[in-house]
Each structure stands twice: as structure tokens, then as C-alpha cells.
Amino acid sequence: MNRVWIGLLTAVLIAACGSSKSKTRRVDIREDDEIMGTGLESKDIEDIAKFAKSMIAHPELTGPYVEGVPTVAIHPIENNTRFDFDSELVVRRIRQQLVENAWGKVRFVTRSNREEALIERERSGKRGGEYTSSKQETKTGADFYLTGTAASVSKVGRGLQSDAIWIDFALIDAENGEIIWEKPFKTKKIGKAGVVYR
């Protein structure tokens, strides 16, 4: 009888000491995974890019009375959340969606952080008549600005973590600062700390 016990214990211990194999698998970029956090995930970035394209249908961009091809400058997203993220990646994904859906009716340019300083100068210039809209050449070349501002409400407590994130997009007329289109992206996630981390 004792031999049976010893044999069983030995087998269990050997099995326990063996390494478990992990298997890498390919998943859809819009799929949530097991190690997802409460910040912006790949699915959110894809959703942001998709939803921004609804801007294209705005009559001031692609309507019948638009003369020439307007240019939209896409600004970096201003991050006021508690999550650091690659703003350029988000902007790039938005730009790709917009370009794909604009069919040449709208031109897009991106603005880096450094170039942002030029914007106010350009806006003042347009107001003062130095530059004009799409019918004429402009130095910095934008008729509209697409801006995004990310903000969040974050909480922790009782082993839980909750983050609500809003990214508010606005299309602004470069000449008069008028907001001609606005849409928020919203997401909220709640995570629970594992018992071993509480």
C-alpha cells in the first residue's frame, strides 16, 4: 500500500515540476485579450479611427458647394488622461481611414507637436487676410483643423480600478475658429486586481 502512495506522490511531484508550454496565437486586432488593462487598447484605437471617418460626410468638406479641395490638418491628440499613449499612432490610424474614405475630395496633412506653434500664427494670418482658404495658396496649408482631446475619470478602491475615457474630436474652421463638426469617443473599463496583488 505504501508503495502505491509513494509512487503516486512521486508522479505528482514530477508532473508539477514540469514546465507548462505557452502557445503564441494570432488574434484579431480588435479582439480583447487576457492581459488587457483599463486604458486605450488596440480595439479602441481601431474604433477611434473608424468613427472619425464620419467627418468626411460633412457638407463643408464634401458638399456640392465646396470649391476646390479643402485641406484638413490633423493635430496630435492632447492627452489629459492618466495613460501615456502614442498620439502619433492614433493620428496615423485616423489619417489612414480618412484618406481611404475621402476619395480625393479632401486633402489631409498631419501636424507634429512642433508645428503646433505655427497654427496660431496661421490662424491670425488668416484672420488678418494674409492667407486665404482653399482657393489660394497658403503657407501652412490648412482650411480646417481636426483636433482631439483625451480626458479621463479614474478611480481605484476595494481592489477595483475604473477608467472612463473620452476623446473629443472637433473639426475647426481655420479662418474663424468655428467648430463645424464634433464627436466624442467614449469608453469605460473596470478592472479587478487579482487576489495576489491586493
Partner: peptide
């Protein structure tokens, strides 16, 4: 370190075995 979630397997290992088997966060 950003997410404090853990899998049931990780919990079991850290509770029944050595705590240091859990992912350091």
C-alpha cells in the same frame, strides 16, 4: 505593472506555492 489582474493559475501558484511565483508588479 500597469494591470493588476491575475489568472486563476497564477493565484493558485502564489497561494498554494511560493508567493514569488507570481509576476512581479
Amino acid at each position: 505593472m500597469g494591470t493588476l489582474e491575475s489568472t486563476p493559475r497564477e493565484n493558485a501558484r502564489a497561494i498554494w506555492g511560493a508567493e514569488s511565483t507570481k509576476t512581479w508588479k
